[in-house]
Design a protein around this nucleic acid. Structure first.
Lengths: 364, 364
DNA sequence: CTGTTAGCGCCTTCAT
DNA sequence: ATGAAGGCGCTAACAG
């Protein structure tokens, strides 16, 4: 590992001064004699020189890296999000530093500080926690945080930006779809309602129910105690199992994300029923959703657009730091696939008209 | 963002010299007067000082970070692997820098160089590509690479270490299980056989078949042209579809990884059959495997043990650089779940005795 | 036991 | 159009 090459070696080789090499490296080559320029270039790749980014960073202050904190890349949704953001970042000359926090404030804080200490000056925080207290210290130091999947809150620090889908709308779309199909008893499955986005999804579900004059029945809302990021499918599975064991089980269910939905599907089959005999709608539209059988109806998040927004923000930083649209809420949309269908007629009748034992009725 | 604090500020505040602070920070506090030590400590957290890691890195050479290159975290297996390695790394005071290469040598190279330029001196390469040519330059510079999921090859550079499961064995276990259940026509599904591990898995499948005196039928081996890392399930789906359309379709199938297996399951259902009516065995044992319905029989990889091996290697670097066991191949094991069962009797008879149109036979 | 000193590799005024 | 000099924040000899 014989001694890294430095800018001085290149300079010597090219018979110029270090400054010239530096100028060349940093695009300050407008008024440079073409011949010199060529010589420098040649020396650089003849020697196989690569600038030491650490030194550069120390000198110039901060790095061209952005941090990304997610709950857990073991969950395909976060994995995809990481991929998308990385792709955009690379296009803009940024690297992304990926961290898994399990939504643990302590770890988030540790990561944020580590990132900051490493010269990373902006981090995309994707854990949706309502409070950002634990990061306030690093934020006043200068770390810029952009929240993902966390609609901005009344008392957020002014330096915080955010990108998110309209979660209320998403949940409403999901619920409405089920209502329009004729479902009356619609369940809701989630892990701990302890993030901004989950709260809002639950709110959307409830609002839509009420605006359709269906009563909101807490019994139909199954909620776990943990976040269940790594094993969401398992949690969804348990939740659906519980809902199915109710005296009057739901005929359809909205879940907080696709992995929960997949777990729910499995529970339905395990109970001897089938999907869409019991309808399921997910949230996120992960790749697996369309490959599932039956393919999962879900709410799509425009990850690509969101990543683009973030990179715009990262790049146009210095110029108009003042009130540019720092936050953005995007439109999710419903993707209808085969995991949803009208409720079985018999059951619909049975639950709408109280007494109707033999009501197998006409098959429309 | 008022000017970062430096070691000098702390020194002034504690009325000691910068060196003392540095000594304290780096554990050279054995022979330090307790009183001084306490004063330094107090100043540090009173001021909220955090050392600038970039400067430290420039000074000391390299960083306490390890790079991890995987095909794509959008694939749950790689996501889990990243999580596991990160957890171990954190325990040892290392951060993990995660990169997605799509198994593209160009990107791998770019990442490796970037990592190296950033002071990262060891990278865990998880892309299994047979050739490491594209990294040879950075490797002679001093970058240490540890291959994951890539059993060491005859002409590997001597500085390369590796950890992997015994892929031949894994595939043999999978195939043998199916053979023992009574299957005679066993398919094999994979993306491009262009990685070391895939080659070996295919070899294992073939060996086991032959050692059971079942002929190896190329028609039953379905192989895609791409790697299909991000959408493996889709590829597996196509593959199984094709196999099922054969004049004499297989009654069971071994797949290169769990996502392919899940896709295959979907294809089986779409064809109006069911699992384990047609048996499927995967590879990797991702979380989803046990949540699937039916739960997937698969080959488990001991990720935890592998991560531990890597961190041992990373930590015990300097001391015995000479011939320590630099490479390790671990034992995978078969996890039997419900996606495999004996072949339907009728079909078995039909395919073993040539003529037997009406052989619906006794139902055991 | 603690302080002084000299860089790590690069960028950036300021001269030339 | 190019060069010389100083310093980013930290560590590690080496003195005292």
């Amino acid at each position: 590992m014989g001694k890294e090459l430095t800018i001085v070696d290149v300079a010597r080789h090219a018979r110029v001064s270090p400054t010239t090499v530096s100028n060349f490296l940093n695009g300050r080559d407008a008024e440079m004699r073409p011949e010199t320029k060529a010589r420098v270039r040649r020396s650089i790749d003849e020697l196989g020189y690569r600038p030491n980014l650490v030194a550069r960073r120390l000198r110039t202050g901060r790095a061209s890296m952005i941090g990304l904190i997610v709950p857990s890349v073991a969950n395909p949704f976060w994995g995809s999000w990481a991929r998308v953001l990385e792709a955009h970042a690379l296009d803009h000359g940024y690297q992304v530093f990926l961290c898994n926090s399990e939504r643990n404030p302590g770890r988030e804080r540790r990561y944020a500080e580590e990132l900051w200490a490493n010269g990373v000056d902006t981090v995309v925080l994707s854990t949706s926690l309502p409070s950002l207290e634990h990061l306030s210290e690093v934020m006043v130091s200068g770390l810029r945080v952009i929240a993902f999947d966390r609609e901005s809150q009344p008392d957020d620090p002014p330096t915080l930006s955010s990108v998110s889908v309209d979660n209320v709308l998403g949940a409403r779309l999901a619920t409405r779809h089920l209502i329009e199909l004729g479902h009356k008893r619609i369940g809701f499955i989630s892990g701990a309602i302890a993030t901004v986005s989950r709260r809002r999804r639950l709110a959307g579900y409830r609002e839509e129910l009420e605006s359709a004059h269906l009563s909101y029945d807490p019994e139909l809302v199954w909620t776990d105690s943990g976040y269940g990021d790594a094993e969401s499918a398992l949690v969804g599975n348990r939740g659906m199992g519980a809902l199915l064991r109710l005296p009057q089980p739901p005929t359809a269910v909205v879940t907080i994300n696709d992995m929960y939905a997949l777990g729910a599907c499995a529970a339905i089959r395990d109970a001897g029923l089938d999907v869409p005999g019991v309808s399921v709608v997910g949230f996120d539209d992960v790749v697996l959703a369309k490959l599932w059988s039956p393919p999962l109806t879900t709410i799509h998040q425009p990850l690509d657009k969101m990543a683009k927004f973030i990179l715009d923000a990262v790049c146009n930083r210095a110029q108009d730091d003042e009130q540019r649209d720092k936050s953005s809420v995007m439109q999710p949309h419903l993707v209808i696939r085969d995991s949803t269908s009208p409720p079985p007629l018999a059951r619909t009748l049975a639950s709408s008209r109280s007494q109707d034992g033999a009501g197998r009725g006409t098959d429309v």
